[in-house]
Write a protein that binds this DNA or RNA. Sequence first.
DNA 1: CACAATAATCGATCAGTGATAACTTATCAC
DNA 2: GTGATAAGTTATCACTGATCGATTATTGTG
Lengths: 213, 213
Amino acid sequence: MTAPKIRSPRKPKGQGAERREEILDAALKLFSAKGLHTVSTRQIAEVVGISQPALYAYFATKDDITAELCIRAFAILVERMEAARADFVPTAECFERALKVYVDFGLQNPDAYRVAFMVEKGLDGTYKERVGDRPMMAGIGAFQRFAEIVAEMRDAGLTHDDDVQRMTQTLWAGLHGLVSLLIARADFPWVEREVLIACHISLLRRGALKNMG
Amino acid sequence: MTAPKIRSPRKPKGQGAERREEILDAALKLFSAKGLHTVSTRQIAEVVGISQPALYAYFATKDDITAELCIRAFAILVERMEAARADFVPTAECFERALKVYVDFGLQNPDAYRVAFMVEKGLDGTYKERVGDRPMMAGIGAFQRFAEIVAEMRDAGLTHDDDVQRMTQTLWAGLHGLVSLLIARADFPWVEREVLIACHISLLRRGALKNMG
DNA sequence: CACAATAATCGATCAGTGATAACTTATCAC
DNA sequence: GTGATAAGTTATCACTGATCGATTATTGTG
């Protein structure tokens, strides 16, 4: 009658890291399907095929699982930003392409994006004390790659504002707004998504770059 | 030894609505201090001076409390947007002022803003089933006032894009990005806040409006 | 092969959570 | 006074993240 718990076979002695990966995989899938706050550690453990306390051999807290997922996703974003920067030439077209890299990443990795930038961290700093600011640092890593691209545009004399930090923060905020709203409010009556993204990016470009006669 | 629970005197018979207000007040204060997910119904009840189950005489669920707070805050935003529209003339300066109304509101009501646009609602739609989309509708109400302002700018032939919905969504996303990041990532090494806001708003204005000779 | 070491894992349990049920108490109209 | 009932209580439930101590299973070594 009662659901028979299917247990994954115990890992060989040095292979604990493998289980760790399985936990992260299961967590990511569950978070994608049901949202972050509605997924329990017991649900994660059941998908993996281990007992709930077994999770704590690999992660100190539940937040550490989400933090790890976030860090990994941002490693990918950093890669993409570096790729975008590798064949970057300071033109408006190339600049827009770089902005699109960020948006595409967010929409392709909505769960990682949520963890990194949209999750309540608790204003009392509880979260930070536990997992540190490694997830945010990972995000900032991507942010810095983005700043380098903005710097190239400024060096070419194309930006409207000479302060790279300020300009990057503004652009980042502009991109984040669209990504986070499309993720969090998917049921809002948006105009067609790709059109909206294109419009948004060119608005940001017009705002950021000098108006070349 | 153990903390003596201080109980608020029972309300007279018709005065239940008064207790309801006290609950909302307590919840708002606690949410502001500790963040949404870390505040429990028991903590709210203790501040009010009643037992925890007594809350459920006034709100069906905890989410209903946050939803109510959100709706009320957005009523204020709608007021402010209407005020901004009342003495609105289609100029770049006035347009920027309207954008600033939104940003200021978000930063002055961070908790309401969080509930309305930044809280995980659960991808399975659990949240919506419970509290409905009244909080979002309240937010959309404000959005529509904003759209009216954009429409005035377009009618004056000042906007870069003729599609009001598209343009409003883009601008909204741009504003939301800044507000939400400043709220959720207060510890990020931002440049000076007021400067950043001013820069952001003028970037959006340049992107949105035609470049007048 | 036997054996100790230990990585991997489990069952039991804890305090705290949101929520419900059944009950009591104060207040009101008559 | 006497019901009716709004306002509030205590006890409890299923569930949550987390901890403890015990128990496997695997491993390199004698």
